[in-house]
Design a protein around this nucleic acid. Structure first.
Length: 600
RNA sequence: CGGGGUGUAGCGCAGCUUGGCUAGCGCGCCACGUUCGGGACGUGGAGGCCGGAGGUUCAAAUCCUCUCACCCCGACCA
């Protein structure tokens, strides 16, 4: 039984000044966590209690799915990460250190290499597969900017699983098994979630989905279609490719004098003033930014240090979304195209870049990729590669041919849903924010190849194992649950993760009759298997106890006080505020029912 | 890494512009008394290297220089 008279906790009346996110504020105020370092938190008894409940549920669901738990050190040698090139690729996000002899070590940010080597160490036959193993481990990442308390720390707890299969069908089955286990886990945690398509990014591999808790404080932006249910991380959204248009009747393109129009807005204004151009093109509607083809040059930095310029063509009403670009061009990283770079490419006239000078077969040799909306037969106004000049009526597929398409344009609410478009439906996308609470990947053979994990197949042939990796942010899930359930009075835990089933408030002071009844009730409830938090403080007024009970957020609050004169106690539902009086004689049975454990 | 902000008691803050008495307020903490179903009240206490270093000055929380830390936005982020 937890007793507030002796529990190691101090609740705060005011929010700590360094916390902005509600879950962070309340977890500090309610005495669940304390900041110990940038991005590092100490768990106090109440918080550790909740953390262990969350961890237990995750573990139970993994075990139930047939995955086996192992445990690696967090302090890892350099060599395996050297073999997969991640010692370098992980960059400054990796915590590196040396032992007394100057030998390099790292604090594990994720454990693909170690798991791969462990399986290689023990297994060598197709008969040993499939295998899924996992651990619940503290991970270390030197995040540039930890934030929001537990939501993004530099030290955090992750449940990471890895599956090992002989072939793609096996990987697919292992992936689905994890997906199903994750759904059960998050349902049990009472955590609302959306499964979105994601990019596998630096992890490599083919298929990847994220589990996002749809909450405003989340760092991930995703889209979903209200019509068909499609959901995707913005990085993974695909733009439907329009059918090719017939351009046989299109007017020829022409270069027009457009002085002082370095921006899309100035260009559109000028075009709308030039009725002569509209007449020549047979254009009857007003020009908008969507009629313009904006060409943005970026510089790709490849892992080997090579720099390569890339031209991206997209409708002028949209910005380039660098996150989307990065997801497309990985492992290369996009950088800005600097003034110095422009100096090296005199053909590029800043503000007036057009397709003529772009493309691998053009004079500049710059690879030219366009947004899928820039499809065959579409007509554009774009730069004429000469200051103060634009070309109108430039038709894709007639007047210019890009090297390919790229998903680089920002996604906007109201964009066409790609799934609906494929089915000739009319759904549009809406955007929302989410906290990434889980991520599942089909890794494929990247790690197995790099570390030479092979097994003998039925024919006695060495085959490379195919892998999946699957993560749940356990400590982050605690914060996400808090964030999803809190209200203006405080935390509000779902029962299974709450630090107690029942918070008993003794609404009096001193060792009086009320306290005696409360003590007896607490003992009986605890003896019946319920977890009890008893506010037995004798020098605190009832008002303070009520406020603290609401702040701490145990799902059921029992008030033992003046109702005793009528033989009743008061039972409150923390989440919905409902209150009812229960005869003292029926208290145990009633509370057991409320707590989901009827009978005795 | 870029931009903005903040460092004064356990927590939340004022004081700094225009240097000057014992550095102040609320909460919390300790003691005594009153109170006791919605963050009670009175009286008396404890608690501070004013983030750090250097400088200016008779005198620095306050002005100057450097530095460190933290928070927010962006960049970054299986």
């Amino acid at each position: 039984m937890l007793r507030l008279s002796s529990l190691f906790v101090r609740t705060l009346r005011e929010n700590p000044s360094d916390a902005e996110v509600p879950s962070h504020q309340l977890m500090v105020r309610a005495g669940y966590i304390r900041r110990a370092a940038p991005g590092g938190y100490t768990w106090l008894p109440l918080g550790w209690n909740v953390y262990r409940n969350v961890e237990r549920i995750v573990r139970e669901e993994m075990d139930a799915a047939g995955f086996q738990e192992v445990h690696f050190p967090a302090l890892l040698p350099r060599e395996p990460y050297e073999a997969t090139n991640r010692w370098t690729e992980y960059g400054p996000n990796l915590f590196r250190l040396q032992d007394r002899r100057g030998v390099d070590y790292l604090l594990g940010p994720t454990h693909e290499e170690m798991f791969t080597l462990l399986v290689k160490d023990l297994y060598s036959s197709y008969k040993d597969l499939p295998l899924s193993i996992y651990q619940i481990q503290t991970k270390f990442r030197d995040e540039a900017r930890p934030r929001a308390g537990l939501l993004r720390g530099r030290e955090f707890v992750m449940k990471d699983s890895y599956s090992f299969d002989i072939d793609d069908a096996g990987l697919s089955a292992s992936y689905e098994a994890h997906r199903a286990a994750y759904i059960k886990t998050f349902e049990r945690l009472n955590l609302p979630f959306v499964i979105v398509s994601a990019m596998s990014g630096a992890m490599g591999g083919s298929k990847s989905e994220e589990f996002l808790a749809p909450l405003e404080v989340g760092e991930d932006t995703f889209v979903r279609c209200v019509t068909c249910g499609y959901a995707a991380n913005t990085e993974a959204v695909t733009v439907p490719t329009p059918a090719a248009l017939d351009f046989s009747q299109a007017a020829p393109s022409q270069v027009v004098d457009t002085p002082d129009t370095p921006t899309i807005a100035t260009l559109v204004d000028l075009l709308n003033a030039r009725t002569d151009i509209n007449a020549a093109l047979g254009k009857t509607t007003a020009w908008t930014a969507t009629d313009t083809l904006k060409n943005v040059i970026i510089m790709l930095r490849h892992p080997d240090g090579r720099r390569e310029p890339l031209a991206i063509g997209l409708p002028g009403d949209r910005e380039v979304d660098m996150k989307r670009v990065e997801a497309q061009v990985g492992p290369a990283e996009p950088d800005a195209f600097t003034e110095a770079d422009f100096a090296n490419y005199p053909a590029l006239v800043k503000g007036y870049i057009g397709p003529d000078v772009l493309g691998s077969t053009s004079s500049s040799k710059i690879r030219y990729l366009v947004d899928p909306r820039v499809s065959t037969g579409t007509s554009w106004v774009t730069g004429a590669n000469k200051a103060g000049n634009h070309v109108v009526g430039l038709v894709c597929g007639r007047d210019f041919t890009p090297d390919g398409t790229i998903e680089a344009a920002e996604v906007l609410p109201g964009d066409t849903c790609p799934t609906c478009a494929a089915n000739h439906a009319t759904g549009v996308l809406e955007m929302a924010r989410g906290i990434e609470i889980g991520h599942i990947f089909q890794l494929g053979r990247k790690y197995a190849e790099a570390l030479n994990l092979t097994v003998l197949d039925q024919n006695g042939k060495q085959v490379v194992v195919t892998m999946g990796s699957y993560g749940i942010g356990v400590s982050r899930a605690v914060a996400a649950i808090a964030e999803a359930t809190l209200d203006d009075m405080g935390l509000c835990w779902p029962r299974e993760v709450a630090p107690a089933d029942i918070h008993i408030v003794i609404a009096s002071k001193g060792a009086d009759a009320i306290a005696e009844v409360a003590e007896r009730l607490a003992s009986e409830l605890e003896a019946s298997g319920l977890r009890i938090l008893l506010d037995d403080r004798t020098s605190v007024s009832p008002g303070v106890k009520f406020k603290d009970a609401e702040l701490i957020g145990v799902p059921t609050i029992v008030v033992v006080g003046k109702g005793l004169a009528d033989g009743v106690i008061e039972v409150r539902n923390r989440a919905n505020g409902e209150r009812s009086d229960v005869a003292i004689g029926e208290a145990v049975a009633t509370l057991r029912t409320i707590c989901g454990r009827p009978g005795n």
